[in-house]
Design a protein around this nucleic acid. Structure first.
Lengths: 202, 202
DNA sequence: TTGGAGAAGGACTCAAAGGTCCATTATTAT
DNA sequence: ATAATAATGGACCTTTGAGTCCTTCTCCAA
């Protein structure tokens, strides 16, 4: 594949990613993708066997975007304040759209989990990776003595992720980010419930 | 409309409701609905102007199912134990399908909120009603002295609903109900954080 | 018993979306 | 420079699903 071909392919994936985020997978036609990426139909099929193959690529691209950004933020979390900053960034980003579209990964999961088993597994793996980052961050707080050692890192991390996803969904339905903030506040309060005496001020 | 016509209409809505739950709205064709309800195409159009009208009816039917069931359970909640029973029923119901399909209302919201403003508003209103039930239950616990009066009922209720929705989504993606249980446990633990001394045993 | 209104059946049209094919143009390596 | 390979453009085919229309049937009231 030549550099030009690679650029075309990237344009197609980017356009599909964007459109499928705004309209959903089913509502995005290949003609839309073609138009948005300034390519022709045969080019799409040159690079992808069918729509499912394109969707698969979109999943990977999007997951990488989300996880890269999350990794950058979560890696730096060393205190409860760090989780608050993590929360603020997510809420503020979502506020820009008034909650529309929801979580790039969550919305996708919801749409295709039940009728594309391969895609479902791929997304589940990405959620797992996300969960591991959260577990790592919680563990870090335990190591640093911010949280008590008897805290169940996996349960807390899973709770954070669920709160985030549920918050995204309610914000999407109501076009109001309040539920998202409330959900994340609740999850962080639950972290705080495991704070040590010395760590409760951080 | 004769009784027979009403029965036909109900059959159509029921079939559409079921199919759209299992496959999603976009993936459900009117031919599918026709076959599943043992009706003919003209009957569908006799009762519904177009697919959107049918979807609207499905939203109402489904919301009524969910909210009726929730009302029955939440009305009886008088203690933290009551919320645990509420959680157990939801988790166990979802376990029957290994998490597939997710929340009847949440999945629907996710699929159509961004491209059917009327439907989005309708679903948002139903979520609000659900939220009010949860607020009422939390308030009841405050009145009974189980929870402290400084607890923010709306924030806690919103957190419960987000946790539930996020749990549904992660369970759907992973085909594992663990995240759902963890999320609801976390939300209930947060209720418990506001328990009074006397109420902490109930 | 019969006439009429509403219910039911199913053939048909139309548009859109996915997918194929081939001729033409650009790129790259020798 | 040129042959080989890859990229591009766009016409074309096929399927499917939404929506229309007309005929037949059924049920109830006069």
């Amino acid at each position: 594949m030549t550099p030009k071909g690679a650029a075309t392919r990237a344009r197609i994936v980017d356009a599909a990613n964007q459109l499928m985020y705004e309209r959903g997978v089913a509502a995005t036609t290949l003609a839309d993708v073609r138009a948005a990426s300034a390519t022709s139909k045969s080019q799409v099929y040159q690079h992808f066997a069918d729509k499912d193959a394109l969707v698969k690529e979109v999943i990977e691209t999007r997951a990488e975007d989300v996880l890269t950004q999350q990794r950058r933020r979560l890696r730096r979390v060393e205190s409860l304040r760090g989780f608050e900053l993590w929360r603020d960034e997510l809420v503020e980003r979502n506020a820009l759209r008034n909650g529309a579209y929801g979580c790039p990964l969550g919305s996708l999961a919801n749409e295709i989990a039940d009728h594309n088993e391969d895609a479902r597994r791929a997304i589940a793996a990405h959620f797992d990776e996300w969960l591991e980052m959260l577990i790592d961050a919680v563990e870090r707080l335990k190591t640093r003595g911010v949280l008590r050692s008897d805290a169940d890192s996996r349960a807390l991390a899973s709770g954070l992720l669920s709160a985030l996803q549920g918050g995204y969904l309610l914000a999407k339905a109501s076009r109001d980010i309040y539920p998202m903030r409330a959900a994340l506040d609740m999850a962080i309060a639950q972290l705080r419930a495991y704070a040590t005496e010395t760590g409760s001020s951080t």
